[in-house]
């Protein structure tokens, strides 16, 4: 299934189930998912709409808690893992600020802030001084090729540029994990290729774990591993290969 043989695992999910109530009915978004995510890999999670992809990503990012099962995060090989379901709101928020980066399909940039201000916001939330935050943000914008657009507001940027700002923001705290929800969903194919190239570099060159939820088949060549979710369950590897 979704487990890996490597000992260098950063996420371990065992029997993870997530239910929602919708219109009085209980709907299972995820049903008994077992999964290991390796450090430094670019993992693609694919599947039709409503299959539970985003829910899986939210569970990895501590934005939601499982109804059953465990989501464990291994910061360092050999160290005791963190069970995300057991962490409080404060601890989860700190985890998101310092160790996890998020990239959303709709970018979710704050329209009132410039590109640089959007990028540095997580550092300010973490108590870093403005001066230091500005330096760090400039560096990240340079890294994603947007140094020249630092003072532009989101609505002055193209879709691809906005997504690169979102990636720079996700990287600002130097997280070991990057969680991307349909990062190319709002982009054309050329901009999509650019984004996946950038994400692959972050995984392979900087040893960050990158988990990408996507519908986009153009992402397949960039992935180290591909998981297929259907009706809240992970499909067997052979089915992934066939699909």
């Amino acid at each position: 299934m979704g487990t890996t043989a490597s000992a260098d695992v950063i996420f371990t999910l065992r029997g993870v189930t997530r239910h929602f109530e919708r219109g009085g009915e209980v709907v299972a978004a995820l049903a008994g998912v077992d999964l290991d995510v390796a450090r430094g890999e670019l993992l693609l999670v694919m599947g039709p709409s409503g299959s539970g992809k985003s829910t899986l990503l939210h569970l990895l990012g501590g934005l939601e808690r499982p109804s059953a099962g465990a989501v464990q995060l291994h910061f360092k090989a050999g160290a005791p893992p963190l069970d995300l379901a057991q962490l409080g709101d404060e601890q989860l928020a700190e985890l998101r600020r310092r160790h996890l980066g998020f990239v959303f399909q709709e970018f979710h940039l704050l329209p009132t802030l410039t590109a640089q201000e959007n990028v540095l916001l997580p550092l300010l939330l973490d108590g870093v001084s403005e001066a230091q935050a500005h330096v760090a943000a400039a560096k990240r914008l340079f890294q994603v090729g947007l140094a020249a657009r630092a003072d532009h507001l989101p609505d002055q940027l193209s879709g691809g540029e906005r997504q690169r700002v979102a990636i720079a923001r996700a990287l600002i705290a130097d997280p070991s994990v990057l969680l991307c929800d349909e990062p190319t969903g709002s982009l054309d194919s050329a901009r999509g290729q650019e984004i996946f190239t950038l994400l692959r570099g972050l995984a392979h060159d900087e040893q960050r774990t990158v988990v990408v939820v996507t519908h986009d088949p153009a992402a397949l060549p960039f992935a180290d591993r591909v998981l297929l979710l259907r009706d809240g369950r992970l499909a067997p590897p052979d089915r992934v290969a066939r699909s």
């Binding site: 990012g61 928020a93 979710h108 939330l125």
Partner: peptide
């Protein structure tokens, strides 16, 4: 709501 949700996703705690 959206703006606040984004900063919550970025690590702002409920208390803060």
């Amino acid at each position: 709501r959206r703006e606040l949700a984004i900063v919550r996703c970025l690590g702002l705690t409920a208390a803060r």
